[in-house]
Amino acid sequence: EQLTQNVLKSYHETCQLRAEDLQRRRWDTFSREEICAYQKKSMEEMWQRCAGRITEAIQHVVEFAKRLHGFMELCQNDQIVLLKAGAMEVVLVHMCRAFNADNRTVFFEGKYASAELFRSLGRAEDLIGSIFDFAQSLCALQCSEPEVAFLSALVLVNASRPWLQEPVKVSRLRRRLELGFQLLLRRTRREGLLDRLPPQGRLRALCSQHVEQLQALRRRHPPALLDAFPPLYRELFA
């Protein structure tokens, strides 16, 4: 019970956008002119913008991790390993809250945006399509806020990440989180959710696709391109 309260409190304290606000604004979409303005941006500028928004979201995930009971008791190496491998995955899970499945739009820079707004990202368009599909499939599960909180913690605390120094300790923390999640699901009669969650490999594949697209961008542009990207983003993905 204590662990559940801690997961929920950590999640609420570090949530970037409140669910009520996202719901209230879910039909506030970009106008045709605004979409065209985004489409006219250079590929470099659009990448930088997206990297900026991803980095902001990741900073919230780091704060969430720091508040999770047991996370800061892991060795520093393992804290970094878990965040490096899992932060982007958590951001993708959180995206289902900021996604309107009825018109396939996502909250981006103040309004809801369709996939076409990201056209200037160039070849990364496939990646955008895959991310939208993932958000759509997660939205279909209609997860509550406490469920998203636990899913975030479980994506992060994963004992099978490579390069962990103390996987047993991570595994023990994960087991406690799993128990807390099961109790929550039992209490809310949502046990079926566990069988309907997308396979973990799907999140991993999306993250690999993101890094591959970034590498392709770097191959096509001078190294100075990345200088304009947020330092934390470069550290994690470049």
Partner: peptide, 17 residues
């Protein structure tokens, strides 16, 4: 690993903000 991830390491070291 901490050396290669100085920013992340620093964020983790800072108190809850």
């Amino acid at each position: 690993l901490q050396e290669k991830h100085r920013i992340l390491h620093k964020l983790l070291q800072n108190g809850n903000s």
